[in-house]
């Protein structure tokens, strides 16, 4: 089988349209994950065992099972219990929850990365707990969380092809369909890989720069 440029050119519009869906899926999934991760982290940190125990169990459970299994469960099994979700909704919620648990760990690590002495300084200055979080702890935790948050942004993006298995019309799904229609797989799958590459690489680079810029803005550099 030889690479055919005219075929690649011909399917490009559909591939680009599907890229839009992939980006949408990654964006929505990430947004859910970022917010849900915060909720899960706070849930784990509350002193009330009735809340923090179940949340901890849920986080451990979701982190220890594969995303693909979770997707299949939510999309194929849940309907048998009367929970019928569209492929998009099921996909976004599942990815959001899955990566939300990872992000909750990132947040937790970041909060614990702020020295205990910062809390004590705030207490000695008589700050309220809310103000301590807002002005002192979170601004210092954010740069610590940023690399992990960035990794999972790229991670979610690269895991969106799993959504093809439940029928979300993203890149992989479109490449599958094109292959089935034309019996040519070389060009669609190569293009999928290439598109992922040209989006992932600059994103990762951009994130590095962001990390450096945030560190600079916070005065945490010595040069």
């Amino acid at each position: 089988m030889e690479w055919r440029w005219e075929f690649a050119w011909e399917i490009l519009p559909r591939m680009l349209w599907a890229t839009g869906n992939t980006l949408l899926a990654a964006g929505v999934g990430y947004t859910i994950a970022v917010v849900l991760g915060l909720v899960l982290m706070l849930g784990q940190r509350t002193p009330y065992r009735l809340i923090n125990m179940p949340v901890r169990e849920l986080v451990e459970f979701v982190r220890s099972t594969p995303l693909l299994v979770q997707l299949f469960f939510v999309f194929f099994v849940a309907p048998q219990f009367g929970i019928k979700l569209s492929a998009w909704t099921a996909g976004m919620l599942t990815i959001g929850l899955h990566f939300g648990t990872y992000l909750s760990e990132v947040y937790r690590g970041a909060l614990e990365g702020v020295p205990k002495s910062q809390w004590e300084a705030c207490r000695a200055l008589n700050f309220t707990t809310g103000y301590t979080y807002r002005r002192v702890i979170l601004p210092q935790a954010f740069p610590i969380a940023l690399p992990g948050m960035g990794n999972y942004l790229v991670g979610i993006f690269k895991d969106t092809p799993l959504l093809a298995t439940i029928g979300v019309a993203e890149l992989m799904h479109t490449a599958n369909a094109l292959g089935a229609e034309t019996y040519r797989y070389l060009e669609p799958y190569t293009m999928v890989g290439f598109i992922f590459l040209i989006i992932s690489l600059p994103t990762a680079m951009g994130l590095r720069r962001l990390e450096a810029a945030v560190a600079r803005a916070q005065g945490n550099t010595r040069h």
Binding site: S117, Q118, A121, R123, A124, V136, P139, Q140, G219
Partner: peptide, 18 residues
């Protein structure tokens, strides 16, 4: 608590503020 002020061994300044 504001009646009492404390200075720490390790300073504990807020590193993200001037």
């Amino acid at each position: 608590r504001s009646k009492i002020g404390m200075v720490f061994q390790q300073f504990n300044l807020f590193p993200h503020m001037t």
